[in-house]
Amino acid sequence: MSPLRRIAVANADALRARHSDLFDGVLARRLTAIAVVVVLAALAALAVWRLDVSLARFGSGLVQIANIVGAMFPPTPGTHLVVFLHALAETLAIAFLGTLIAAAIAFPLGLLAAKNVIPNVFAHFAVRRLLDTVRGVDVLIWALIFINVVGLGPFAGILAIAASDTGSFGKLFSEAIENADRKPVEGVVAAGGSALHAVRYGLVPQVVPVIASQVLYYFESNTRSATIIGIVGAGGIGLHLAEQIRVLEWGQVAFLVLLILVTVAVIDWVSGRLRFAIIGRSTVGAG
């Protein structure tokens, strides 16, 4: 016990009297905390009971996991190296094209959903609810739907990513457009520019850096999404990953996971640099 603490403990009653505001609420706060924990635990117990989670299953599963992890070493591409690399290229192509198509579709929708461009309340309400609905459907569900429309393969994956990101981009773009400064637009109009000039020279230079940075960020996250949509048959490396897991080729599974991790890290790094370059340039331009 440190000297300071010894003195404090000895004077506990005096301290309590002097700082009654700090000591008074302790019981109530403690009861609230206990109640929160009890509710959380009760919900967890309900989940464990409903979902049929048993310790025995968990234990035997852990043994299996240990076996699987053991079988993963050493990671090896087996005889499929070329196939895997091709699938990786396909994955990147899916992420890239999907993001780009989504951005192209979402830009006009973002203008429609922005209050300062279209003052009509009903128009932007309708567009926003449409975007919400599109965004509410997971990319994997879109993938399954597009497989029904265009068949198995990477094209379905591109369309799935394009569809699900159109919802997110529409919302983000409309917010970026609404946050744009009005003064350049007014300046262009005051100098005799038309509405089109105002959008091109007043609005676009402000929002393009923001939008480009958001598109790059989504390209990053879509690289991850594109690795899994193959699991349902929409092209890319996920197809091979699911296949190798089903045939219990753990060395190749480990290789594929490592391949995905490295790719994601590289894309993160490149796009991080690009985003920094874009944002940096725009602040320099503004200053």
Partner: peptide
Amino acid sequence: RTVPELVFALLFVMAFG
């Protein structure tokens, strides 16, 4: 956080059923 959760799910389905 980098390995997609669906990949973990696929692996765990093999291990836990």
